[in-house]
């Protein structure tokens, strides 16, 4: 269970990115975080694993107060938090296998990682995960030879080999085509379900979020302005989050056909 209380972040430039955000994510829940650019979505998830240092507030992950940890304990805590990035953030000149195994760096010593001597269990798990995401035939390809969708699958495998308690997902589909976007979102949600893993997914595409996540939180100017199930999103709520616009074509409401047919068409 992740419990964020009264979290604020002020950047050195004086911008208040977050203004007292409180949020609880129970185990196994996939939460979609929507909101306009600059609302603080990225800052929020980066504060959880402290790639960005929060200014005030508390972050409690299964009893550990993340905001208090010193650098050694923070490293230990980060091992249990997987992260997936918008531009995949793979190390381009390393192979698929090396990228996946880098998710285990927190558990192996420097020289073992330098000589790529990872424990056999980690290697087995890496092969298993690559098979699960459908890339078992690309183990020794360099990351920069892969397509966008394939790279994101490697990114997912790297996050999951950490055996995380929480997944932070930053715009996973923003650089992908619509079909690949759906496949990637479906994969992330399936894996979360298999492992009873909770996740916070920043996402631009409102309809895509509605299709896959169990709960939607709307962030606007550093504050939470909406928190509810996906089907309660309507034009009024979207106007509240993003501002005035014609929202008819964006959301999937009850007048449309059932979600399953849409989900299938993405395959």
């Amino acid at each position: 269970m992740l419990r964020i209380t009264n979290l604020s972040k002020r950047y050195k430039t004086g911008d208040d990115a977050l203004k007292g955000v409180s949020l609880e994510v129970p185990d196994g829940q996939v939460l979609g975080l929507i909101g306009p650019s600059g609302a603080g979505k990225s800052t929020l998830i980066r504060c959880v694993n402290r790639l960005v240092e929060p200014t005030t507030g508390t972050i409690d992950l299964n009893g550990a107060q993340l905001q208090r940890l010193g650098s050694r304990k923070l490293r230990k805590a980060r091992r249990r938090i997987g992260m997936i990035f918008q531009e995949y953030a793979l190390v381009e000149r390393l192979t698929v296998m090396e990228n996946v195994l880098s998710g285990r760096l927190g558990y192996v010593g420097f020289w073992a990682s330098w000589f790529r001597k990872f424990p056999q269990d980690d290697i087995n798990e890496a092969f298993r995960l690559l098979e699960r995401v459908g890339l078992d035939h690309m183990v020794n390809k360099r990351a920069d030879e892969l397509s966008g969708g394939q790279r994101q699958r490697v990114g997912i495998a790297r996050a999951l080999i950490q055996n995380p308690e929480l997944l932070l997902v930053d715009e996973p589909t923003a650089s992908l085509d619509p079909k690949t976007s759906r496949q990637i979102m479906r994969l992330i949600c399936e894996l979360c379900e298999e492992r009873n893993l909770s996740a916070i997914v920043n996402i631009h595409d409102v309809a895509l979020a509605q299709l896959f996540v169990q709960r939607i939180v709307g962030l606007q100017d550093g504050k939470i302005v909406f928190d509810g199930p996906p089907d309660s999103l309507d034009s009024a709520v979207l106007t509240q989050i993003y501002g005035e616009e014609d929202w008819e074509a964006t959301t999937i409401d009850d007048t449309q056909t059932d979600k399953h047919s849409l989900e299938l068409s993405g395959e």
Partner: peptide, 30 residues
């Protein structure tokens, strides 16, 4: 160098020396 690749390695809980060897060194090899 591209900083998100470095961020990604840091986010796994790697120590600083590993962040350099996995996140930075491959990028500056050429």
């Amino acid at each position: 160098i591209n900083t998100t690749q470095v961020e990604a390695i840091s986010a796994t809980g790697a120590r600083q020396s590993q962040v350099i060897s996995y996140g930075i060194l491959p990028q500056i090899m050429p």
